[in-house]
Simulated scan of single mutants.
Amino acid sequence: MKLARAIHFDDSDTRVFHNPARTGEWCLSGGFEFSNWSEADLTGKARQAFANGWLGCETFGRVSFVAVTRIERSEYNALVDMLAQHFVEIYGAPSLEAARGVALEELAQMADLCDEHAPNTLLTVARALTESGVRETYRVIEAQEAGLEQFAIHGALDEEPHKH
């Protein structure tokens, strides 16, 4: 099974989101957070979170890019519990058991999105408010297309050491 983890290429997320997700935490689309929003809610950093932020499952912060990766069943089960607890504490779900079904749905949607992509594929999300609610679209950036080598440290390994 695959999900996606938060990834940062620079510190821009710390400037554009109220609460940036932590690098490496598991993420969801998190569009449910905006289900009751209107245009009036879309200002400043809240607008940025709405427009293109994935939701971290530990900090419940936002991130611009996620990378597809494999997840162990035990990690997945822990995420279900964490998300269900969030739905009870923040959204007023009547019980952990009731919230668990919604958490499973959210994680299954993300797993379906990630399943068709190779590990290290980058994903972005774009949201728009429409008359029928929030519309999400996803952009896929294949690992080779992302030019990940530009973030690697380059150096020659075959150089002779300096002689004195």
Rank of each mutant, 00 (worst) to 15 (best):
M1L: 06
L3H: 03
A4N: 03
R5A: 10
A6D: 03
A6N: 03
I7E: 06
F9T: 06
F9W: 09
D11T: 13
D11K: 11
S12C: 06
D13N: 13
D13R: 07
T14Q: 13
T14I: 00
T14R: 14
R15N: 07
R15L: 15
N19M: 07
P20V: 02
P20K: 11
P20S: 06
A21C: 09
T23W: 02
G24D: 09
G24N: 12
E25W: 07
W26G: 01
W26I: 07
C27D: 01
C27R: 08
G31W: 12
G31V: 04
F32I: 04
E33W: 02
W37P: 00
S38C: 05
S38E: 11
E39Q: 15
E39G: 02
L42S: 04
L42V: 02
T43Y: 04
R47I: 00
A51L: 13
A51I: 03
N52I: 01
W54M: 05
L55R: 11
C57L: 15
C57H: 00
F60V: 01
R62Q: 15
R62E: 09
V63H: 02
S64R: 15
S64I: 08
F65L: 14
V66H: 05
A67C: 10
V68L: 08
R70N: 13
R70V: 03
I71R: 02
R73M: 10
E75G: 06
E75I: 00
Y76P: 00
A78W: 04
A78R: 15
L79F: 03
Q85R: 13
H86W: 13
H86P: 00
F87H: 10
V88I: 11
V88N: 03
E89G: 00
E89L: 14
I90E: 15
I90T: 15
Y91S: 06
S95C: 08
E97W: 05
A98R: 13
A98L: 09
R100K: 15
R100D: 05
R100A: 03
R100W: 05
G101V: 04
V102Q: 11
V102F: 12
A103L: 09
L104K: 14
E106L: 13
A108E: 13
D112L: 13
L113Q: 10
E116M: 05
E116W: 03
A118V: 11
A118L: 13
A118R: 14
P119D: 15
P119T: 13
P119Y: 00
T121Y: 04
L122E: 03
L123F: 10
L123S: 02
V125Y: 03
V125C: 01
R127L: 05
L129D: 00
E131F: 02
E131H: 05
S132F: 07
G133T: 01
V134G: 01
R135F: 06
E136F: 02
E136R: 04
T137H: 08
Y138Q: 04
R139V: 06
V140P: 02
I141H: 10
E142C: 04
E145W: 07
E145S: 14
E145C: 04
A146L: 13
A146I: 11
Q150G: 14
G155C: 08
G155S: 14
G155T: 00
A156C: 08
L157K: 08
D158L: 12
E159C: 06
K163C: 01
K163M: 10
H164T: 04
H164N: 08
H164S: 12
